[in-house]
C-alpha cells in the first residue's frame, strides 16, 4: 500500500491531496464494464425471448450484434470523458493558489510536468480501453455461443459487423 502511495505521489502534481480521485476513476472501469455487459445482456435476453416466441416464423434470426450492443459502451464513454476532464484538473493544479507552473517549466527534465499530469490518467485510459475490448469480446462470445446457430444473422455480419460497428 505504501508503495502504491509513493508511486501515486511520483506521478502526481506535488502536494495534491489524497488519492480518492484515482480510486474513484479506477472503480469506474469495472462499473463501466458491468454496465456494458448488463445493458447488452438485457437486450440480448429480450431478443432471445422474442426469437423463441416466434420460432415458426420464416427468416426468424437474431438481430445483428451491433444492434443489440448499441449504447452499451456509453459507460466507457462517460469514464473517458471524466478522465479527460481529470487531466485538465491536474494541469490547472499548477496554477491554483500559486504559479508552480513556473517551477515545472524551468526544470531540467522537461518530462517531469507531463509525467505528473499524464501518466496515471494514461494508465487509466489504457486499462479502460483493454477492459472495453475484453467486454466487447465477452458479449460477442455469448452472442455467438448462446444463439442457436441457425438463428444467427449472416456470417460476415456476425464476424466483422459487430466489432466494427459496436
Amino acid at each position: 500500500m505504501n508503495r502504491l502511495v509513493q508511486l501515486y505521489r511520483r506521478f502526481s502534481p506535488p502536494g495534491i491531496a489524497g488519492s480518492t480521485d484515482v480510486v474513484l476513476l479506477a472503480a469506474g472501469i469495472p462499473v463501466a464494464a458491468i454496465f456494458c455487459y448488463c445493458s447488452f445482456s438485457v437486450k440480448y435476453d429480450r431478443a432471445l425471448t422474442d426469437l423463441n416466441d416466434n420460432l415458426l416464423l420464416k427468416n426468424n434470426v437474431m438481430p445483428p450484434f451491433r444492434e443489440l450492443f448499441k449504447g452499451s459502451m456509453s459507460g466507457f464513454g462517460v469514464l473517458i470523458l471524466l478522465i479527460l476532464v481529470w487531466i485538465m484538473i491536474r494541469y490547472v493544479f499548477f496554477y491554483r493558489e500559486s504559479k508552480s507552473i513556473y517551477l515545472m517549466r524551468r526544470l531540467p527534465k522537461r518530462s517531469e510536468l507531463y509525467k505528473r499530469i499524464l501518466v496515471i490518467p494514461a494508465v487509466l485510459l489504457g486499462l479502460s480501453a483493454i477492459t472495453a475490448i475484453i467486454t466487447v469480446l465477452l458479449c460477442r462470445y455469448y452472442y455467438i455461443h448462446l444463439t442457436p446457430a441457425n438463428q444467427l444473422p449472416a456470417h460476415i455480419e456476425m464476424i466483422y459487423g459487430g466489432i466494427i460497428h459496436a
Binding site: G15, A17, S98, S100, Y102, R106
Partner: peptide, 14 residues
C-alpha cells in the same frame, strides 16, 4: 537560473 516571484512558484499543499 532560479526564480523567486511575488506570484509564488511553490506548491501550496506541499
Amino acid at each position: 537560473l532560479s526564480f523567486a516571484t511575488c506570484e509564488h512558484s511553490f506548491f501550496p499543499n506541499l
